[in-house]
Protein backbone atom coordinates (compact mmCIF):
# COMPACT_ATOMS: atom_id res chain seq x y z
CA UNK A 1 0.00 0.00 0.00
CA UNK A 2 2.71 2.39 0.98
CA UNK A 3 4.78 1.32 -2.03
CA UNK A 4 1.79 2.04 -4.24
CA UNK A 5 1.34 5.41 -2.53
CA UNK A 6 4.93 6.44 -3.09
CA UNK A 7 4.77 5.36 -6.71
CA UNK A 8 1.81 7.65 -7.17
CA UNK A 9 3.74 10.40 -5.45
CA UNK A 10 1.21 11.26 -2.74
CA UNK A 11 3.13 9.36 -0.10
CA UNK A 12 6.39 11.08 -1.00
CA UNK A 13 4.66 14.40 -0.90
CA UNK A 14 3.51 13.87 2.66
CA UNK A 15 6.92 12.63 3.68
CA UNK A 16 8.53 15.84 2.49
CA UNK A 17 6.81 18.91 3.93
CA UNK A 18 9.18 21.23 2.02
CA UNK A 19 7.86 19.81 -1.24
CA UNK A 20 4.26 20.23 -0.12
CA UNK A 21 4.97 23.85 0.84
CA UNK A 22 6.66 24.47 -2.50
CA UNK A 23 3.68 22.99 -4.36
CA UNK A 24 1.15 25.03 -2.36
CA UNK A 25 2.97 28.34 -2.85
CA UNK A 26 4.27 27.50 -6.33
CA UNK A 27 0.88 26.57 -7.78
CA UNK A 28 -0.79 29.75 -6.58
CA UNK A 29 2.13 31.94 -7.65
CA UNK A 30 2.28 30.29 -11.08
CA UNK A 31 -1.46 30.79 -11.52
CA UNK A 32 -1.05 34.50 -10.77
CA UNK A 33 2.07 34.84 -12.96
CA UNK A 34 0.33 33.09 -15.86
CA UNK A 35 -2.66 35.45 -15.69
CA UNK A 36 -0.60 38.63 -15.20
CA UNK A 37 1.98 37.57 -17.78
CA UNK A 38 -0.67 37.02 -20.42
CA UNK A 39 -1.88 40.61 -20.16
CA UNK A 40 1.71 41.82 -19.95
CA UNK A 41 2.57 40.16 -23.28
CA UNK A 42 -0.71 41.23 -24.88
CA UNK A 43 -0.13 44.85 -23.83
CA UNK A 44 3.49 44.82 -24.99
CA UNK A 45 4.75 45.49 -21.46
CA UNK A 46 7.06 42.51 -20.99
CA UNK A 47 9.91 44.89 -20.39
CA UNK A 48 8.04 46.24 -17.36
CA UNK A 49 8.34 42.75 -15.92
CA UNK A 50 12.10 42.96 -16.36
CA UNK A 51 12.22 46.31 -14.57
CA UNK A 52 10.08 44.94 -11.74
CA UNK A 53 12.47 42.04 -11.32
CA UNK A 54 15.40 44.41 -10.84
CA UNK A 55 13.46 46.57 -8.41
CA UNK A 56 12.24 43.62 -6.38
CA UNK A 57 15.87 42.63 -5.80
CA UNK A 58 16.72 46.10 -4.55
CA UNK A 59 13.55 46.26 -2.42
CA UNK A 60 14.34 42.94 -0.78
CA UNK A 61 17.97 43.91 -0.22
CA UNK A 62 16.94 47.25 1.30
CA UNK A 63 14.52 45.49 3.66
CA UNK A 64 17.30 43.12 4.73
CA UNK A 65 19.73 46.01 5.27
CA UNK A 66 17.26 47.89 7.46
CA UNK A 67 16.20 44.77 9.35
CA UNK A 68 12.65 44.60 7.96
CA UNK A 69 10.69 41.64 6.61
CA UNK A 70 11.91 40.87 3.10
CA UNK A 71 8.34 40.60 1.84
CA UNK A 72 7.62 44.16 3.00
CA UNK A 73 10.52 45.47 0.92
CA UNK A 74 9.46 43.37 -2.05
CA UNK A 75 5.84 44.48 -2.12
CA UNK A 76 6.50 48.16 -1.38
CA UNK A 77 9.18 48.39 -4.09
CA UNK A 78 7.34 46.49 -6.82
CA UNK A 79 3.83 47.85 -6.26
CA UNK A 80 5.27 51.34 -5.90
CA UNK A 81 7.16 51.03 -9.16
CA UNK A 82 4.13 49.48 -10.88
CA UNK A 83 1.97 52.46 -9.89
CA UNK A 84 4.66 54.94 -10.96
CA UNK A 85 5.11 53.25 -14.34
CA UNK A 86 1.35 53.08 -14.80
CA UNK A 87 0.96 56.77 -14.01
CA UNK A 88 3.79 57.71 -16.35
CA UNK A 89 2.05 55.70 -19.06
CA UNK A 90 3.25 56.67 -22.50
CA UNK A 91 5.73 59.10 -21.05
CA UNK A 92 7.17 56.18 -19.10
CA UNK A 93 8.36 54.65 -22.35
CA UNK A 94 11.48 56.74 -22.34
CA UNK A 95 14.34 55.74 -24.59
CA UNK A 96 16.38 52.68 -23.73
CA UNK A 97 19.40 54.72 -22.66
CA UNK A 98 17.55 56.32 -19.74
CA UNK A 99 15.89 53.06 -18.69
CA UNK A 100 19.19 51.22 -18.95
CA UNK A 101 21.03 53.72 -16.81
CA UNK A 102 18.33 53.82 -14.14
CA UNK A 103 18.12 50.01 -14.08
CA UNK A 104 21.85 49.57 -13.70
CA UNK A 105 21.87 52.04 -10.84
CA UNK A 106 18.89 50.39 -9.11
CA UNK A 107 20.74 47.06 -9.22
CA UNK A 108 23.92 48.75 -8.00
CA UNK A 109 21.97 50.07 -5.02
CA UNK A 110 20.64 46.57 -4.36
CA UNK A 111 24.19 45.23 -4.27
CA UNK A 112 25.09 48.01 -1.84
CA UNK A 113 22.19 47.17 0.52
CA UNK A 114 23.09 43.52 0.35
CA UNK A 115 26.70 44.30 1.26
CA UNK A 116 25.50 46.33 4.25
CA UNK A 117 23.32 43.43 5.35
CA UNK A 118 26.05 40.82 4.95
CA UNK A 119 28.67 42.93 6.72
CA UNK A 120 26.30 43.76 9.59
CA UNK A 121 25.53 40.08 10.22
CA UNK A 122 27.94 37.23 10.17
CA UNK A 123 29.07 35.52 7.00
CA UNK A 124 26.41 32.86 7.67
CA UNK A 125 23.87 34.93 5.76
CA UNK A 126 26.10 35.35 2.73
CA UNK A 127 23.80 33.26 0.56
CA UNK A 128 20.70 35.29 1.32
CA UNK A 129 21.41 37.49 -1.70
CA UNK A 130 21.49 34.42 -3.88
CA UNK A 131 18.08 33.33 -2.63
CA UNK A 132 16.62 36.76 -3.42
CA UNK A 133 18.09 36.63 -6.92
CA UNK A 134 17.28 33.01 -7.72
CA UNK A 135 14.53 32.09 -5.27
CA UNK A 136 14.37 29.47 -2.55
CA UNK A 137 11.02 27.79 -2.99
CA UNK A 138 12.15 24.61 -1.21
CA UNK A 139 13.05 26.72 1.81
CA UNK A 140 9.55 28.08 2.49
CA UNK A 141 8.05 27.40 5.90
CA UNK A 142 4.44 26.28 6.21
CA UNK A 143 3.34 29.76 7.27
CA UNK A 144 5.28 31.45 4.46
CA UNK A 145 3.86 29.04 1.89
CA UNK A 146 0.25 29.51 2.95
CA UNK A 147 0.67 33.30 3.16
CA UNK A 148 2.23 33.44 -0.30
CA UNK A 149 -0.50 31.17 -1.70
CA UNK A 150 -3.27 33.17 -0.05
CA UNK A 151 -1.97 36.48 -1.38
CA UNK A 152 -1.44 34.99 -4.85
CA UNK A 153 -4.99 33.59 -5.03
CA UNK A 154 -6.45 36.90 -3.83
CA UNK A 155 -4.44 38.81 -6.45
CA UNK A 156 -5.44 36.33 -9.16
CA UNK A 157 -9.14 36.78 -8.27
CA UNK A 158 -8.69 40.56 -8.35
CA UNK A 159 -7.08 40.29 -11.78
CA UNK A 160 -9.91 38.07 -13.03
CA UNK A 161 -12.41 40.60 -11.69
CA UNK A 162 -10.96 43.31 -13.94
CA UNK A 163 -10.09 40.89 -16.77
CA UNK A 164 -13.04 41.84 -18.97
CA UNK A 165 -12.61 45.64 -19.05
CA UNK A 166 -8.82 45.20 -19.05
CA UNK A 167 -9.00 42.98 -22.13
CA UNK A 168 -11.27 45.51 -23.81
CA UNK A 169 -8.93 48.38 -22.91
CA UNK A 170 -5.93 46.35 -24.13
CA UNK A 171 -7.33 45.29 -27.49
CA UNK A 172 -9.00 48.58 -28.38
CA UNK A 173 -8.21 51.42 -25.97
CA UNK A 174 -9.99 54.12 -28.00
CA UNK A 175 -13.30 52.30 -28.31
CA UNK A 176 -13.06 51.16 -24.68
CA UNK A 177 -12.54 54.75 -23.55
CA UNK A 178 -15.49 55.89 -25.68
CA UNK A 179 -17.65 53.20 -24.05
CA UNK A 180 -16.80 54.61 -20.63
CA UNK A 181 -14.05 52.17 -19.59
CA UNK A 182 -11.54 53.98 -17.41
CA UNK A 183 -8.53 52.92 -19.47
CA UNK A 184 -5.92 54.87 -17.56
CA UNK A 185 -7.09 53.80 -14.14
CA UNK A 186 -7.18 50.18 -15.30
CA UNK A 187 -3.65 50.49 -16.63
CA UNK A 188 -2.36 51.74 -13.29
CA UNK A 189 -4.31 49.10 -11.34
CA UNK A 190 -2.99 46.41 -13.65
CA UNK A 191 0.64 47.41 -13.21
CA UNK A 192 0.15 47.58 -9.44
CA UNK A 193 -1.16 44.01 -9.63
CA UNK A 194 1.79 42.98 -11.80
CA UNK A 195 4.08 44.56 -9.21
CA UNK A 196 2.49 42.46 -6.48
CA UNK A 197 2.74 39.40 -8.75
CA UNK A 198 6.45 40.12 -9.24
CA UNK A 199 6.94 40.30 -5.47
CA UNK A 200 5.18 36.94 -5.13
CA UNK A 201 7.16 35.37 -7.98
CA UNK A 202 10.43 36.54 -6.43
CA UNK A 203 9.70 34.23 -3.50
CA UNK A 204 9.39 31.29 -5.88
CA UNK A 205 11.95 31.72 -8.68
CA UNK A 206 13.83 34.82 -7.56
CA UNK A 207 14.11 38.38 -8.81
CA UNK A 208 16.21 37.56 -11.88
CA UNK A 209 14.09 34.68 -13.15
CA UNK A 210 10.56 35.98 -12.55
CA UNK A 211 10.61 37.45 -16.07
CA UNK A 212 10.66 33.87 -17.38
CA UNK A 213 7.63 32.88 -15.32
CA UNK A 214 5.74 35.94 -16.60
CA UNK A 215 6.80 35.73 -20.26
CA UNK A 216 7.18 32.04 -21.14
CA UNK A 217 3.71 30.63 -20.26
CA UNK A 218 2.03 33.69 -21.79
CA UNK A 219 4.12 33.39 -24.95
CA UNK A 220 3.30 29.68 -25.12
CA UNK A 221 -0.42 30.38 -24.76
CA UNK A 222 -0.32 33.02 -27.48
CA UNK A 223 1.37 30.54 -29.78
CA UNK A 224 -1.43 28.05 -29.20
CA UNK A 225 -4.49 30.27 -29.45
CA UNK A 226 -5.37 33.80 -30.50
CA UNK A 227 -8.68 33.80 -28.61
CA UNK A 228 -8.17 36.11 -25.63
CA UNK A 229 -10.09 34.31 -22.85
CA UNK A 230 -8.91 30.89 -23.91
CA UNK A 231 -5.37 32.27 -24.07
CA UNK A 232 -5.68 33.82 -20.61
CA UNK A 233 -6.72 30.55 -19.00
CA UNK A 234 -4.28 28.53 -21.09
CA UNK A 235 -1.48 30.81 -19.89
CA UNK A 236 -2.45 30.25 -16.26
CA UNK A 237 -2.78 26.49 -16.77
CA UNK A 238 0.57 26.26 -18.60
CA UNK A 239 2.27 28.27 -15.85
CA UNK A 240 0.94 25.91 -13.17
CA UNK A 241 1.97 22.84 -15.20
CA UNK A 242 5.44 24.35 -15.77
CA UNK A 243 5.69 24.90 -12.02
CA UNK A 244 4.65 21.34 -11.16
CA UNK A 245 6.95 19.79 -13.75
CA UNK A 246 9.83 22.02 -12.64
CA UNK A 247 9.35 21.18 -8.96
CA UNK A 248 9.08 17.47 -9.75
CA UNK A 249 12.21 17.59 -11.91
CA UNK A 250 14.18 19.38 -9.22
CA UNK A 251 12.92 16.93 -6.59
CA UNK A 252 13.93 13.91 -8.66
CA UNK A 253 17.28 15.38 -9.77
CA UNK A 254 18.50 17.17 -6.65
CA UNK A 255 21.47 18.77 -8.39
CA UNK A 256 19.04 20.91 -10.41
CA UNK A 257 17.98 23.98 -8.37
CA UNK A 258 14.17 24.36 -8.40
CA UNK A 259 14.19 27.80 -9.99
CA UNK A 260 16.39 26.54 -12.83
CA UNK A 261 14.12 23.52 -13.36
CA UNK A 262 10.96 25.68 -13.43
CA UNK A 263 12.41 28.17 -15.92
CA UNK A 264 13.95 25.40 -18.03
CA UNK A 265 10.60 23.59 -18.27
CA UNK A 266 8.77 26.86 -19.06
CA UNK A 267 11.31 27.79 -21.75
CA UNK A 268 11.25 24.24 -23.12
CA UNK A 269 7.44 24.26 -23.34
CA UNK A 270 7.60 27.58 -25.17
CA UNK A 271 10.18 26.24 -27.61
CA UNK A 272 8.01 23.13 -28.14
CA UNK A 273 4.98 25.31 -28.85
CA UNK A 274 7.06 27.23 -31.38
CA UNK A 275 8.05 24.06 -33.20
CA UNK A 276 4.59 22.51 -32.96
CA UNK A 277 2.84 25.56 -34.35
CA UNK A 278 5.27 26.14 -37.19
CA UNK A 279 5.75 22.52 -38.30
CA UNK A 280 2.16 21.55 -39.22
CA UNK A 281 1.80 24.61 -41.40
CA UNK A 282 4.86 23.57 -43.36
CA UNK A 283 3.60 19.99 -43.41
CA UNK A 284 0.25 21.18 -44.70
CA UNK A 285 1.97 23.26 -47.34
CA UNK A 286 4.02 20.24 -48.39
CA UNK A 287 0.89 18.08 -48.56
CA UNK A 288 -0.81 20.70 -50.71
CA UNK A 289 2.18 20.73 -53.02
CA UNK A 290 1.88 16.98 -53.47
CA UNK A 291 -1.81 17.27 -54.25
Amino acid sequence: MSAFGSAVGIGQLLEHPFLAHALIAGSAIALLAGLAGYFLVLRGQVFTGDVLGHVSFTGAAAALAFGLDVRLGLFVATIGLGVVMGLLGERGRADDVIIGNVLAWVLGLGVFFLAIYVSSRSAVNGTVGVSVLFGSIFGLSSAQAWTAAGIAVALALLLLAIARPLLFATLDPTVAAARGVRVRLLGVLFLALVGAAAAEATQAVGALLLLGLLAAPAGTAQRLTLRPYLGLFASAAIAVLDMWAGLALSFLVPSLPPSFAIIAVAAGAYALAFVATSLPRRAIAAAMMLL
Partner: peptide, 25 residues
Protein backbone atom coordinates in the same frame (compact mmCIF):
# COMPACT_ATOMS: atom_id res chain seq x y z
CA UNK B 1 6.97 42.82 -31.34
CA UNK B 2 4.89 41.36 -28.50
CA UNK B 3 6.01 37.84 -29.29
CA UNK B 4 9.61 38.97 -29.75
CA UNK B 5 9.62 40.52 -26.29
CA UNK B 6 8.19 37.33 -24.80
CA UNK B 7 10.93 35.33 -26.52
CA UNK B 8 13.64 37.77 -25.38
CA UNK B 9 12.37 37.67 -21.80
CA UNK B 10 12.27 33.87 -21.81
CA UNK B 11 15.76 33.52 -23.32
CA UNK B 12 17.15 36.01 -20.81
CA UNK B 13 15.58 34.22 -17.85
CA UNK B 14 16.79 30.87 -19.19
CA UNK B 15 20.35 32.19 -19.61
CA UNK B 16 20.38 33.48 -16.02
CA UNK B 17 18.85 30.23 -14.76
CA UNK B 18 21.53 28.20 -16.57
CA UNK B 19 24.23 30.37 -15.05
CA UNK B 20 22.72 29.73 -11.64
CA UNK B 21 22.68 25.98 -12.35
CA UNK B 22 26.37 25.99 -13.30
CA UNK B 23 27.32 27.95 -10.20
CA UNK B 24 25.38 25.59 -7.93
CA UNK B 25 26.87 22.54 -9.67
Amino acid sequence: RAEESAVTGTVQAFALASGFLFVSL
